[in-house]
């Protein structure tokens, strides 16, 4: 049987999602046994950057023309494009304040050197090309990545949860940080899949996986504000990982 050809490609990002893949230590041999990794710059310098790919996993967000060109080339050479990690799925941290005046930002960071930078307001992959599957997370969950590969190998898309972190948090019978400690825990609006990793360690959810499809941002924001946090700060917090329209909802 021909093994599916796979590319793991990074745009602008921290490579954290690619590192999660490399950290699948117990499964790495199974992984390379099942798929033919052709293009994975983070792991090898011997890459085939031209061949057809059955599946491309693309990490990072689009913050430059160079990113955009690369993404379009990847889209053309692959059959299934998977957005890998919150930056790819939602735009991530680079999109938190993307509507700000770009030249002013450049001046603030680099002074008056007037260097020509290839830079544009950050975008998620789906804002540039068609994305077939989203694997959110900052970083992604190992189990969800492996389940995705296993399902794709069987011709299926994986079933990933699209409900809130609260659901997994309750399944683990954790104390509620929002209700009991009045903390701004983004669990009720953030997509599950992490098994409520942070609230299980008494750390409020920061929404690193992005919102669930049906997130009621407005009602949640009002609840956080009720706990004495300024609405401005609530909205800023909710927009950390995804450019969500908190105030225009529902």
């Amino acid at each position: 049987m021909n093994k599916p050809k796979v590319g793991i490609i990074g745009l602008t990002g921290c490579s954290g999602d690619q590192l999660v893949i490399l950290n699948c230590e117990d499964q790495l041999l199974d992984l390379v046994g099942a798929i033919d990794i052709r293009d994975f710059l983070t792991a090898t310098s011997a890459n085939d950057t031209e061949s057809r790919l059955d599946v491309a996993f693309v990490e990072g967000s689009v913050v430059s023309q160079k990113d955009e060109d690369l993404l379009r080339r990847v889209r053309e050479r692959c059959t299934i494009l998977v957005a890998l990690g919150t930056c790819a799925v939602w735009g991530g941290i680079p999109t938190m304040d993307r509507d700000q005046d770009r030249p002013a930002l450049l001046r603030a960071v680099y002074g008056d050197l007037n260097w020509e930078y290839d830079t544009c307001p950050a975008k998620a992959l789906h804002e540039v090309v068609k994305v077939d599957l989203n694997l959110p997370g900052c970083p992604i969950e190992k189990d969800q990545f492996l389940a995705t590969v296993a399902n794709l190998l069987n011709g299926n898309l994986p079933l990933l949860p699209d409900y809130a972190v609260c659901t997994e948090c309750k399944m683990k019978e954790n104390n509620c940080l929002l209700i009991e400690k009045k903390q701004v825990c983004l669990g009720p609006v953030s997509v599950a899949g992490c098994q409520a990793r942070c609230p299980s360690l008494n750390i409020p959810c920061v929404g690193c996986r992005g919102p669930c499809t049906d997130a009621n941002l407005k009602s949640a924001a009002a609840t956080y504000a009720e706990n004495g946090v300024a609405m401005e700060d609530v909205i800023r917090k909710m927009k950390t990982f995804a450019p969500v329209p908190v105030s225009e909802q529902p």
Binding site: A164, C166, T167, K170, C176, P188, D214, N216, S219, P250
Partner: peptide, 22 residues
């Protein structure tokens, strides 16, 4: 308008028995 669809009430309910099979 108020509900967050977070699922908390169903998880903690002693008689909510819906399940999903996959």
């Amino acid at each position: 308008d108020q509900c967050l669809s977070c699922g908390s009430c169903s998880m903690v309910c002693p008689t909510c028995y819906c399940y999903d099979v996959a």
